[in-house]
Simulated assay, not measured.
Amino acid sequence: MMMVTVMSVVLGLFFVLAGSVKLLGWQKQVFEIQLAYFRSYGLSRRAMAMVGALELSGAALLGLYPAAGALLLALVSAGALSFHLRFDTLKEGAAALMTLVLSLSLWSLL
Rank of each mutant, 00 (worst) to 15 (best):
G19P: 04
S20A: 06
V21W: 05
V21D: 07
K22E: 04
K22P: 04
K22H: 08
K22R: 04
L23P: 01
L24R: 05
G25C: 07
W26R: 06
Q27F: 11
K28T: 15
Q29D: 15
V30L: 05
V30D: 12
F31Q: 02
E32D: 11
I33M: 02
I33W: 10
Q34L: 15
L35K: 02
F38Q: 04
S40H: 12
Y41S: 12
G42F: 15
G42R: 07
G42N: 06
G42P: 05
G42I: 15
L43K: 00
R46P: 08
M48P: 07
M48V: 10
M48K: 05
M50P: 05
M50A: 12
V51G: 00
V51C: 03
V51Y: 00
G52D: 03
G52T: 14
L54K: 00
E55Q: 06
E55W: 11
L56P: 02
L56E: 00
S57A: 14
S57N: 06
S57G: 09
G58K: 01
A59N: 01
A59L: 03
A59W: 02
A60E: 05
L61V: 12
L62D: 09
G63C: 11
L64T: 15
L64K: 03
P66F: 11
P66H: 13
P66M: 08
P66W: 11
A67K: 07
A67Q: 12
A67H: 13
A67S: 13
A70S: 11
L72A: 10
L72V: 13
L73M: 02
L73P: 00
A74M: 06
L75M: 11
L75S: 02
V76Y: 01
V76K: 01
S77A: 10
A78W: 07
A78H: 06
A80R: 01
A80Q: 06
A80H: 08
L81A: 05
S82C: 04
F83Q: 13
H84G: 00
L85E: 07
L85D: 03
R86T: 09
R86F: 15
F87H: 01
F87N: 08
D88T: 01
D88F: 07
L90C: 14
L90G: 03
L90S: 11
L90K: 14
